[in-house]
Every structure is written in structure tokens, then in C-alpha cells.
């Protein structure tokens, strides 16, 4: 019974944080709420005896992806919506309708199937040693491919986000200043600097 109470608290926490993440107006608040939702998901993983995945979830989602989103929001400053502007798209009613249809298509089969009260086997554990052994034996090729993918994604992200303006060369000695120009003040200040 305490298991179920913990699970219900986890569900309420995760879903309310997720709903807040897509409902709030300020994108920074959205990213922080998303971090909370990912942490709640990690707690649910702990309840399923997947400790390694729970901690990987904390490290990658809460630690990296949420912070990356906050960085992206802050680097694209100046586009935040005015207090009166719409946050949701014009076709949000269609979107909500499709969402409800999707949710029904997922949830109705789940709660009408015979797996409703399937109880877990008593012992199911995947210690970190076993995961490491599996990664180095059965899953060696996928792991190598994943390393290649992560490397290429890292290089690709840097290349895409890099400034491609022609005056990049004379800026290269001050990359922290010129790498992410804010909206329209940058050319003026640069011209001022060169004239002075």
C-alpha cells in the first residue's frame, strides 16, 4: 500500500510539472518545470527497480537537457512574448483535439486489457556491473555507433550554432563577445568600435 501512495504522489508531481512546463508563459519557467517533471520520472524509474536508469535520467535530463534549454532561451533573448501576445498557436484547438484522440487511443486499450492487474515478478534487478558487462559484450556495436552519433551530433551542433558572418575572422580573438549577437545592437557597437 505505501508503494501505491508513493506512486500516486509521483504521478501527481510529474504530470503537474509537465503540464506547467507546457502551459507557463515564461520559457525559463517552462524549462525549470520540465526539470521537475524529468526528476519525477526518475522517481518512477526508481520504483521500477531501475536505479541506473533513474540516475542517468537525473544526469542527462535534469542536468543537461533542461540546462541546455535554459541556455537556448537565454541566448534567444528579446523574443519573449509580450504580456498580451498569444503563447499558443492559432490552431491550438485542433492540436488539443488531436491530443485528446491520441490519449484516448493510448489509454483506452491499456485500461481495458488483461494486463491491468499483472503483478511484477518478485526479483528483477539489473546491477550496474551486469549493465556494463552487457554493454561490452552483446551491445558493443550499438554502443560504438552511439559514441559516433554523439560525437557527430556534438560537432554538428557546434557547426550549426556557429556564426557564419563574413566578418567572423576579425572577431575570432573575442569569441565570447561576438559569438551570440543580440538582436540589433551588435552592428552599431561594432561600427562604433572600429571608428574609435
Amino acid at each position: 500500500m505505501p508503494n501505491k501512495i508513493t506512486f500516486c504522489l509521483t504521478v501527481v508531481f510529474t504530470l503537474s510539472a509537465a503540464v506547467a512546463a507546457i502551459r507557463l508563459r515564461n520559457p525559463v519557467h517552462c524549462a525549470l518545470s520540465a526539470a521537475l517533471a524529468f526528476a519525477g520520472l526518475a522517481v518512477a524509474f526508481l520504483g521500477l527497480d531501475a536505479e541506473f536508469i533513474a540516475f542517468a535520467q537525473i544526469l542527462v535530463y535534469v542536468g543537461a537537457i533542461s540546462i541546455l534549454s535554459i541556455f537556448a532561451v537565454l541566448l534567444t533573448r528579446g523574443t519573449e512574448v509580450e504580456p498580451t501576445a498569444a503563447v499558443f498557436s492559432r490552431s491550438w484547438i485542433t492540436g488539443i483535439a488531436i491530443t485528446l484522440g491520441t490519449a484516448a487511443a493510448i489509454l483506452v486499450p491499456i485500461f481495458s486489457s488483461s494486463i491491468l492487474y499483472k503483478i511484477a515478478p518478485a526479483v528483477a534487478s539489473a546491477p550496474v556491473q551486469m549493465i556494463g558487462t552487457e554493454l561490452m559484450t552483446h551491445y558493443l556495436l550499438p554502443m560504438e555507433v552511439m559514441g559516433l552519433l554523439l560525437t557527430s551530433a556534438l560537432i554538428g551542433a557546434v557547426v550549426i550554432a556557429m556564426s557564419d558572418r563574413p566578418e567572423k575572422k576579425d572577431d575570432s580573438s573575442h569569441p565570447s563577445v561576438t559569438r551570440y549577437p543580440s538582436a540589433e545592437s551588435k552592428p552599431a557597437t561594432k561600427r562604433d568600435l572600429t571608428t574609435v
Partner: peptide
């Protein structure tokens, strides 16, 4: 959670 994420993906600007 999938439905909430889907709603965020299709309705936000």
C-alpha cells in the same frame, strides 16, 4: 505524459 508532451509539441509557439 506522452499526451502532455504531444500537446506541448503541437500547440506552443
Amino acid at each position: 505524459l506522452f499526451a502532455v508532451g504531444f500537446a506541448g509539441a503541437v500547440t506552443r509557439r
